[in-house]
Design a protein around this nucleic acid. Structure first.
Length: 817
RNA sequence: GCGGUCGUGGUGGAACGGUAGACACGCUACCUUGAGGUGGUAGUGCCCUACGGGUGUGGGGGUUCAAAUCCCCCCGACCGCACCA
């Protein structure tokens, strides 16, 4: 019997399928664990990142099953999205065919890796049943005022011919194809995620124990809450007149009201309505207009290169001193943030300072450091003490902030405000392969929702995809319909939804079993039992996008009455990337390793063992072909040596006292490995050390000859390794233990206590020797033995202090006599 | 610039204030063998006047009987955000 993984693995994979081994029980009295991996986009083949992701979740799922938990470990496919359409353009395949063919192939790959997914709950988000419920939620959200339509400036990717959310724009380029994005004015639907900004931010504290600091900070920065003062700057009479009395004032926002007396100019975004009015009505000279237009047309990257601006020839009055302040248009002022206008305090803000220096605008310092001198050659941006600030002189910045806000509020010329970087989530996509937005445009009734009983609004199959424009828009008949309200002729919305909508609630859908699959999106009792997700495993790239949206949906569903909890994912494990030759595996770099080839060559168990052994799950994992072979050799040895064990359906009982030294040592190693495994699976998730412990135990087991000890060792090791290398462990266990050992293993204390203990001896903290002493030896005797052992280091020395760390070491503090 | 994570052998990585380098890869030597992804034994941080000693966790300081681990400063890497007023 030599180790042939292909035979063993397919045998067990078939066995698990036939026995429905991984379907959760509907007995809700059992303790539960919901183990979830981020579901994949069906791109065609699994890559190593997927293998790592699902190997980690599978280890959890299998461990908890052994521990007696009712485990939900589902899988599905995030199957809407652009690559399906891109493939259609490239090969003429239909997005639907392409998608579902890929799903079939990837399911076979899952099977061949031995992942213990619940197959009966598998979903593809492009399934019409999924779309149906999703569209239902969209209608609910619209009714609640959480979804709205407006015209706005949008990120448009000229290559993918689609609108992108701000989160999908990376360094000014499309997150998928790297094409620089341009701004385009369009109608589009938005989720009002900003309404939940505070809660999304505050509830991060509930996740502190289960989520990494990194992800929490990324979300915190993304939401970007800042508190400050919002107030109006009033135009002077001359300026009002110039603007035909159309404008009286404009709003600005500042987080530094303490610097208010240092305002020397004010700047508007080039897109600001006052600027637009002045351009449209030729209130500026041609040069100025050209400069502003070029600011507006330059990409966000160009706009960041250098500050530039133009004077608009109008002025406002300082809210407190009533002095005249010139108004500029400047490229560094963002229309999307705050009110698109800033008060400029060059003495205390770097950006304002740079701009003032460039255009020779006055700089007026009003804050000085509480100790030391103010350097007037740069902006002093720290907090400090106010001067030249009227009645606020002498206050420190923090007190002044509060006082000045209060002052503005008393005078009713401004108010305390909070601003966010987070913007509402634009969800329209001008694409075919997505869930249609279930709205209808009627000339008489306006924007009308489709009736729920007519859902889903399904995609037409007969479609032509050319890569230009929206295929639904161009379809000859699909968009023509009757208005649900007046029954007159109407037109369907042709925008489809951002695929992040589907992944914002799929984890809830998994809670539903087949019996209510058709009737409702999920049942309350099932949600109550299964949620929250105990372990959510996936890539760090979703730290802000998916994870923020899913949190948002959870809160919305709670407010719609579907749920009664606030946060979906109790614990989040973000796995590290899989690297080869120091770089992320990617087709373009040509450094990929194909999981199918590894499985064909070494088997799934080897792939799984290597992946969990080579690094802790949150760290990057460097692919190493010879280490993969090492993993294979370990499994082979593990399998070969199992020839030495005997058949038993119960764990052998062993009289520990009768064992020799090697036998006792081997047993101890086995139980130490068990102890470690329990800790790793429950608390620390560092599978590499758990596997190392099992390897140590194996090494000790093969260095002794007692068959009882060997058999007991295998009883335990196949149990703790089953989550990692399930096929070979099942094979061994079936051959010898009738699969009876895949249960919670109990620790035997006497094994862990040896009859002697090694103490390291150090002098002044330096390691100098080692002694072995009997159990329970009094400290005085240990110290005496220790002194004897390191006698030569004590010559001409007097001992100042003696420290005994129980079961560890003795430290003697000495000094020369 | 701001924020986060992290710096340990030739490599991946152990060590939750207590004998640094577990476990594995690689390498060296030897033994096995029907030479082709075999098994075994021994060795493997660095330095030295080597059955002994020194030194060592990016660098420098500190706390402690004891620091890779805690604190401060510096250097470097990676990731995220980036003119957010």
């Amino acid at each position: 019997m030599s180790y042939i993984p292909q035979e063993i693995e397919s045998k067990w994979q078939n066995y698990w399928s036939e026995h429905r081994s991984f379907e959760p029980s509907d007995n809700f009295d059992l303790p539960k664990k919901y183990i979830l991996s981020m579901f994949p986009f069906p791109s065609g083949r699994l890559h190593m990142g997927h293998v790592r992701n699902y190997t980690i979740s599978d280890a959890f799922a299998r461990f908890y099953r052994q521990e007696g938990f009712n485990v939900l470990h589902p899988i599905g496919f995030d199957s809407f999205g652009m690559p399906a359409e891109n493939a259609a353009i490239k090969n003429g395949s239909h997005p639907k065919t392409w998608t579902y063919d890929n799903i079939d192939y990837m399911k076979k790959e899952f099977q061949s890796l031995g992942f213990s997914f619940s197959k009966e709950r598998e979903i593809a988000t492009s399934d019409e049943l999924y779309t149906k419920f999703e569209q239902g939620f969209i209608i609910d959200m619209y009714e609640k005022g959480l979804l709205y339509r407006k015209e706005g400036l949008l990120n448009w990717c000229p290559h993918d011919q689609t609108v992108l959310a701000n989160e999908q724009v990376i360094d000014g380029c499309c997150w998928r194809c790297d094409t620089p994005i341009v701004k385009k004015e369009m109608n589009q639907y938005y989720f009002k995620i900003t309404q939940y900004a505070d809660e999304l931010l505050n509830d991060l504290s509930k996740l502190e124990n289960g989520w990494s600091k990194q992800v929490l900070t990324m979300q915190e920065n993304w939401i970007g809450r800042s508190n400050g003062l919002e107030f109006k700057l009033f135009l002077d009479d001359k300026s009002k007149k110039k603007l035909d009395d159309k404008f009286n004032s404009f709003e600005v926002f500042t987080t530094r009201p303490d610097t208010i007396y240092g305002v020397t100019y004010t700047a508007l975004a080039p897109e600001h309505e006052i600027v637009s009015y002045m351009i449209e009505n030729s209130l500026l000279d041609e040069n100025t207009i050209n400069t502003i237009m070029s600011m507006k047309n330059s990409s966000s990257i160009d706009r960041q290169k250098e500050k530039s601006g133009v004077s608009l020839g109008i002025s406002v009055m300082h809210p407190l001193t009533k002095k005249e302040i010139p108004v500029w248009a400047a490229n560094f002022v963002l229309i999307e943030y705050g009110s698109g206008a800033v008060m400029a305090v060059p003495a205390h803000d770097e950006r304002d300072f740079d701009f003032a220096k460039k255009y020779d605008l006055p700089v007026k310092a009003v804050i000085k450091p509480s100790i030391g001198k103010l350097n007037v050659n740069e902006a002093y941006i720290e907090v400090g003490v106010l001067f030249d600030s009227g009645e606020f002189n002498g206050l420190n910045s923090n007190d002044a902030k509060a006082k000045i806000i209060e002052h503005f509020e008393t005078l009713k010329i401004g108010k305390k405000t909070t601003n966010y970087k987070l913007k509402d989530w634009g969800v329209s996509r001008q694409r075919y392969w997505g869930a249609p937005i279930p709205f209808i445009h009627c000339d008489r009734c306006g924007l009308v929702m489709e009736k729920k009983e007519n859902l889903p609004v399904a995609l037409p199959d007969d479609i032509e995809i050319t890569g230009e424009g929206n295929p639904l828009e161009k379809h000859p008949t699909w968009k023509y319909c009757k208005c649900p309200k007046c029954s007159g002729d109407a037109i369907r919305e042709t925008d489809t939804m951002d695929t992040f909508v589907e992944s914002s609630w799929y984890f809830l859908r998994f809670c539903a079993d087949k019996t209510n699959w058709e009737k409702e999106p999920f049942s309350n009792s099932q949600i109550k039992y299964w949620m929250g997700v105990d372990h959510y495993i996936g890539g760090i790239e979703h730290a802000v996008l998916h994870l923020l949206y899913a949190r948002f949906f959870t809160k919305v569903f709670r407010d719609l009455g579907y749920l009664d909890f606030d946060e979906p994912f109790d614990r989040l494990l973000t796995q590290g990337m899989v690297l080869k030759d120091g770089a992320k595996m990617s087709k373009s770099k040509g450094n990929t390793v194909d999981p199918d080839e590894i499985i064909a060559k070494y088997g799934a168990d080897t792939a799984r063992l290597f992946i969990l052994f080579a690094a802790p799950p949150t760290q990057e994992l460097e692919w190493n072909d010879s280490a993969v072979e090492g993993a294979f050799r370990f499994i082979k040895r593990f399998y070969d040596k199992s020839r030495g064990i005997y058949k038993t359906a119960v764990k052998p009982t062993i009289d520990h006292l009768k064992l020799n030294k090697d036998e006792k040592f081997a047993r101890k190693k086995v139980y130490e490995a068990l102890q470690r495994a329990i800790d790793v699976y429950n608390n620390r998730y560092i599978f590499n050390t758990m596997i190392a412990g099992a390897m140590e135990a194996m090494n000790a087991l093969t260095s002794q000859e007692n068959k009882d000890v060997l058999t007991e060792g295998y009883w335990i090791l196949t149990s703790i390794l089953e989550p990692v290398i399930p096929h070979v462990c099942h094979e061994i266990s079936k051959n010898s233990f009738e699969l009876k050992n895949f249960v919670n293993q109990e620790i035997v204390d006497e094994v862990l206590q040896s009859d002697s203990i090694k103490y390291g001896i150090s002098i002044n903290g330096k390691n100098r020797g080692e002694i072995e002493v009997a159990l329970n030896m009094p400290n005085e005797e240990i110290i005496a033995l220790a002194k004897e052992n390191v006698k030569k280091w004590l010559e001409d020395m007097s001992i100042v202090k003696e420290i005994v760390v129980p079961n560890k070491l003795v430290n003697l503090v000495v000094k020369p006599c």
